[in-house]
Nucleic acid binder design. Sequence first.
DNA 1: TGAAAATCGT
DNA 2: ACGATTTTCA
Lengths: 260, 260
Amino acid sequence: MFEARLTAGSMLKKITDAMKDLVTEANFDCSSTGISLQAMDSSHVSLVALLLRADGFDHFRCDRNLQLGINLGSMAKVLKCCNNDDIVTLKADDNADAMTFMFENQTQDRISDFELKLMDIDSEHLGIPDTDYKAMISMPAGEFQRICRDLQILGDTVTIAVGKDGVKFSVSGEMGSGNMTIRQNTSVDTKEEEQVTIEMEEPVTLNFALRYLNFFTKATPLSGTVCLQLSKDVPLVVEYAMPDLGHVRYYLAPKIEDEA
Amino acid sequence: MFEARLTAGSMLKKITDAMKDLVTEANFDCSSTGISLQAMDSSHVSLVALLLRADGFDHFRCDRNLQLGINLGSMAKVLKCCNNDDIVTLKADDNADAMTFMFENQTQDRISDFELKLMDIDSEHLGIPDTDYKAMISMPAGEFQRICRDLQILGDTVTIAVGKDGVKFSVSGEMGSGNMTIRQNTSVDTKEEEQVTIEMEEPVTLNFALRYLNFFTKATPLSGTVCLQLSKDVPLVVEYAMPDLGHVRYYLAPKIEDEA
DNA sequence: TGAAAATCGT
DNA sequence: ACGATTTTCA
């Protein structure tokens, strides 16, 4: 059987909200080492990968590997019934046809449990090649969200250019054009949550569809910091790390067109 | 060339928001003394006049007079990308086909710039006659906004009656009728932002379309105080002063009908 | 007074 | 699903 207990129940809500707009249903792959999920969005353009490590849970048991196919929209709805400070326990019997969500409040004088029917979902477990990215940017997740939202005003495609003087996000459209540049700022008086770090082996300039980036930034509540990794001609990686628990990663291939 | 730097970038947002619902596009007339704008609303009923004095900016340079035609909706969208504590710089080359908006945060590790295409707009620079108004009312801007919003529930036309015992805003419609009266209150214990001042040469009673007054009150965030000036048979003036910077003024002709 | 949350409307 | 608005809380 599978049983996983997470004191920070609100994390599970945020994780589900971070994926449900991109992917309607997906397999939660449970093993003794934890839970992982990989799925392409419905238009097969981007990919989301979730990892929750067993030791990140307050209790974790998984006797044999299980593939739990879940409708993420339904899961998000069920998790709406979970208070933010509730303790969540996920359960599934081997060969079960449902996953159980149990919510307990801190004092454990209120317990709810919900069952979601499992579904058979074609798993398209794509091997994601380990890439040596030429540029890695770490920045406040909220700032990245704001950039992607704001630039969408002017156009559909953003050009991300990493150079030695910073990262430039550019867009152009009928109304006009826009550029937002951020620089590394790791001076002593920079608050940790405002830090920008840029590691660059060589300059990289790529185009991406803002529509998908704006799906990715639904994960902003998961983490104060987002990490972008880029290399020429390979998908961008957008990672939201959850300290001591795992991460949500998104992959998006660059647009080929040089001009928008 | 033209270049104007304003530390209080949020003011520019508020100014644009104060006009964009009334006027879709307008010419910013830039000269060495500052920026001015005059435009009638799309139905040619009311008029808005903006004045920003050169010395209200932190830096102002305008080598030759420029008329920059801008779509105010686009401008408002671009200014959404400006954080409230950002520093804004406006720029245009002589004969430019675009105006540049540059936003810097306080620490200047984040810089954005946006270009908006300029447009040719018929300028209908109306001479506004200097009128000796018979009544002038200064009151909290928020209170005026509330009056105009609330009275609209009951009808379309407000009667503003300035008499020696105060100002009465009246409306009547199918549902019923309403009156709101404010009196001068300049006693010692009145906070400045709640002060009401009424200067009256002779009593004035005029009718106005609430629809337009409610457009005007979009300027409420610009100033704590609004100033109304009225005389028989001439347009009402609604002025929001921005200390040390300039003002936004609205003009609205009275309705002729005596009864709504 | 401002910011956050919830709700509404497109 | 998103933005805008409104309402509420701090």
